[in-house]
Simulated assay, not measured.
Amino acid sequence: MKIQSLEGYRAARYYTAWMDRTEQIGLLSVSGPDRFSWLQGMVSNDVRLLEQGAKRLQACILNPTGHVLTDLALVAVANGQLPALHDCILLDMPRENREKIGRLLDRFLITEDVELNDVTPQLACLSLQGPAAAQRIQQLNLGPCVIVEADHTGSGGFDIYVPTEMRDTLLHSLHIPVLDEATVELLRIEAGIPKYGAELDESVIALEANLRQTHISLSKGCYVGQEIMARIESRGHTNRGLTGLVFSPNQIPDIGETLYPVQEPAREVGRITSVAASSPAMDNRPIALAFVRHEFAQPNTLLHAGASRKEAVVVPLPFISTTQGTSE
């Protein structure tokens, strides 16, 4: 996937740009007096942080073997912020997981005083991304909404949840570059952010995808998959991990291609999950995210991809500097 213009890319990296997340996400609301304690046993991060005042919390819902059923963000909504939603927690997840997760959570509702509702049609989510996003939000004339810090690009940003009927009005008031799908994907890959359907699915253990610091609590107590997380942590590492690859110019790999060590060309040690054909952060060379076996994931390791043996070098994630924008 290749971007058509660098305008949106540069705006997101150095100023601010917007993206419309509305069609990509599913939203479930969890309300009722027991919502915090009930969710504490459902998700991989510590929901008490929301109870103590945090506005947004990233987490996963895991199966008993620690594999990812979905990644999600938990967003606190207070009375008066959004019409028809009162003191609830929004579960923001990939839209393809909404029905599956809704059914799963509903099965775990037994005696708790909790109400679970699908509110996807009621809300839109627009996101300002970039180092100047906070200043830009101050200039917007916003009505009922919920604003939370949310970084989808590696450059920082905010998600704005509004009633669906306000979506077009807000879009027309954002006189800044828009990020098309290809640019969003490039920014995500450069930032090393895993995405459901690419790096995340039910074959992936959460700790393999570098989610330890952002999505996983090992100290909060029991939740589905917690025992596996603790066991891996005590062992020190997973057998494989999410890794960055930089390719030679014009050697663009394909998603799904197998990776082989240069010295052991018959040994499969990894698989490519996401590809950007040209990365400004890496001198416009092709880059990729891949799961690579631990012993072959050290920086500067040389690997070959696919039958054509495209040459790649392993680099640390993210590809960008999170403090200075794109790498020099």
Rank of each mutant, 00 (worst) to 15 (best):
I3F: 11
E7V: 13
A11L: 04
Y15F: 04
T16L: 08
T22A: 04
G26S: 03
P33C: 07
R35Q: 06
F36V: 15
L39V: 08
S44R: 02
S44W: 02
D46C: 15
E51G: 09
R56C: 10
L57Q: 07
L62A: 13
H67F: 11
L72V: 05
V77K: 00
P83F: 08
L85H: 04
L85D: 00
I89M: 04
L91K: 04
E96W: 02
R98I: 08
I101D: 00
G102R: 02
R107E: 00
D113C: 03
V114C: 03
P121R: 03
G130Q: 10
P131S: 06
A132H: 08
I137G: 02
N141G: 01
G143N: 09
S155I: 09
I160C: 04
R167F: 01
R167I: 11
R167C: 01
D168N: 07
L170Q: 01
H172L: 05
P177V: 10
P177N: 03
T183N: 05
R188K: 09
I193L: 14
I205Y: 05
L211Q: 05
R212E: 13
S219D: 14
Y223A: 07
E227Y: 11
E233Y: 11
N239Y: 07
G241M: 13
G244V: 15
F247H: 05
N250Y: 00
D254I: 05
A266W: 00
R267A: 12
T273C: 01
S274E: 02
S278P: 02
A281Y: 06
M282Q: 15
L289D: 00
L289N: 05
A290F: 05
R293F: 02
E295D: 11
P299V: 15
L303P: 02
A307H: 03
P318R: 09
T322C: 12
Q324T: 15
S327A: 14
